[in-house]
Design a protein around this nucleic acid. Structure first.
Length: 464
RNA sequence: GGCGGGUUGGCGGAGAGGUUACGCAGCGGAUUGCAAAUCCGUGUAGACCGGUUCGAUUCCGGUACCCGCCUCCA
């Protein structure tokens, strides 16, 4: 069996991946807060961990991998949007409007991530469906002295967990020295973080031993991963920005609540996304969603390919030039593999992926297969990367158009010109065809017209 | 200020202590009436300064620059 090697953030080294139970692999990845469309940066971890999911399924068997990715559907931004709608005159209670907002955002998320060729995880738990487990976990933490209740809040006692800061390489004292956060007066220690907070009448809330309130963000992932994957599971993934404080807090909560478990054995973090060399931000005007790109006509498969060009632990820059390159390559490969039956993934591709998810290396192996015209191997290997599948194939199909009349006309003009040596009429028609996005191929064998990516039927009509 | 990551050829981007990465673009050639497409070939590198070594782009140290996190942004 192929040995998968992964860079474990916990140890900061590349390690051989040893599953707890090879017949049942378990992976948890932090999912989105569903208050709005997913932006391009949200899509990177989705593609990264989808690729890992596919690799695990390939190596261990498709039925042996459980992949959990949550939806955070309780959040102040969701509340704010629902409130805004209510004030704008939308009908329904605030609770109904919140539910509407999360429902529609989840549907968008599914549609957008499907377009990127990401497989749906085995489970996609919503935080609001696990409130009971969160309350239970908090009660346990309070009982064991790792947490305390104050003024309607429940807080985690950071000093009670000795390894706090280990994942992100920070010491608690350093953190306090550099802290810029205003400390709530009811905290025993500035580092303590919220497990449960009170809700006003306007906000969504659940009854709890500490009063009506809602969970803190970090406890959600701890409760859901425990419920669905158990005390110890194999892999926990997410963006590097979540390493601190979110993942650090998750570890503290889970380790203290379940002292006999390991929580996650391997922690993987993907680097962040940039756009044309700069961090994506609304103020720079380079902020866009996955849907924006899809609407511009950039196929999801192209977006996925661009992501795969860069290793997941390097910052990735989204540029139009990369999208152009990716699209050209995919068009070529799709044309060559359209009627080919996939065989088995090439060893070079599997090896590259098994080496800490070296997707750029895997793509190079794909190029090598294309160079050798191993189309069935290319197709099977590309499938492992979520590429060249039939489910995403329509975009690269040549437009259906009958060019036979024009082909004959061009051929006739050409043979006449061969005799007269006056090619002006041939060149005029050729230029018109090229302007309409038609590829003109002339050789001794004859004339062939192929509609290209920029094919424009209107311009074709206009040819006299 | 604290912590972490990075700096590879025109561009993108990997691996490996000594042998061609790869892709795009460029250049040369085949082909073509000319092109396009295709095929063949080809140049260009490892931020800077030291150290280890027979040998370093690859290991170690320092310098410069860039980036991220420290704020419920993936």
């Amino acid at each position: 069996m192929v040995t998968i090697r992964l860079t474990n953030s916990k140890t900061r080294r590349k390690e051989d991946f040893q599953p707890i139970d090879p017949s049942h692999l378990r992976m948890y990845v932090c999912g989105p807060t569903v208050y709005d469309r997913a932006h391009l940066g949200n899509a990177r971890p989705v593609v990264v961990f989808d690729t890992l999911y596919r690799l695990l399924r390939h190596v261990y068997g498709p039925d042996r991998v459980t992949y959990v990715r949550n939806f955070t559907d309780v959040d102040d931004k969701i509340n704010a949007e629902a409130l805004r709608r209510q004030q704008a005159g939308a009908p329904g209670t605030l609770e109904e409007l919140i539910r509407q907002r999360t429902e529609e955002t989840i549907a968008w998320y599914h549609a957008d991530m499907d377009a990127l060729g990401a497989l749906r995880p085995t489970h996609e738990p919503r935080a609001t469906e696990y409130i009971g487990q969160m309350i239970g976990m908090i009660e346990g933490l309070i009982a064991s002295g790792h947490a305390y209740a104050r003024e309607g809040h429940a807080l985690f006692r950071v000093r009670s967990y000795q390894d706090y800061g280990k994942l992100s390489g920070r010491s608690v004292d350093d953190m306090i020295a550099g802290a810029r956060v205003e400390v709530a007066p009811f905290k025993e220690d500035p580092m303590d973080f919220v497990l449960w907070k009170p809700s006003s009448g306007q906000e969504p809330g659940w009854d709890s031993p500490w009063g009506r309130g809602r969970p803190g963000w970090h406890i959600e992932c701890s409760a859901m991963s425990h419920e669905l994957l158990g005390e110890s599971f194999d892999i926990h993934g997410g963006g590097l920005d979540l390493q601190f404080p979110h993942h650090e807090n998750e570890i503290a909560q889970s380790a203290c609540a379940h002292p006999h478990g390991d929580f996650a054995r391997y922690w993987l973090h993907n680097e962040m996304l940039q756009v044309e060399g700069k961090k994506m931000s609304k103020s720079l005007g380079n902020f866009f969603t996955v849907r924006d790109l899809l609407d511009q006509g950039i196929p999801g498969e192209v977006i996925r390919f661009v992501f795969l060009m860069t290793h997941y632990r390097s910052p990735m820059d989204w540029t139009a030039e990369k999208a152009r390159q990716a699209e050209a390559t995919l068009r070529k490969w799709r044309a060559a593999t359209a009627s080919v039956t996939a065989s088995v993934p090439l060893p070079g591709v599997v090896e590259a992926l098994a080496d800490d998810l070296n997707t750029a290396g895997a793509l190079a192996a794909l190029h090598a297969a294309a160079g050798e015209a191993d189309w069935s191997g290319l197709k099977a290997s590309a499938a492992l990367l979520g590429l060249l599948g039939d489910d995403m194939g329509d975009w690269a199909l040549a437009p259906q158009v009958d060019l036979s009349a024009l082909t004959e006309r061009l051929a006739a003009l050409r043979s006449a010109a061969m005799a007269t040596k006056d090619f002006s009429a041939v060149d005029a028609l050729k230029s018109a065809l090229i302007a309409a996005g038609v590829e003109v191929r002339m050789s001794k064998a004859g004339v062939e017209l192929v509609p290209g990516p920029d094919f424009d039927p209107a311009k074709l009509e206009a040819i006299p």
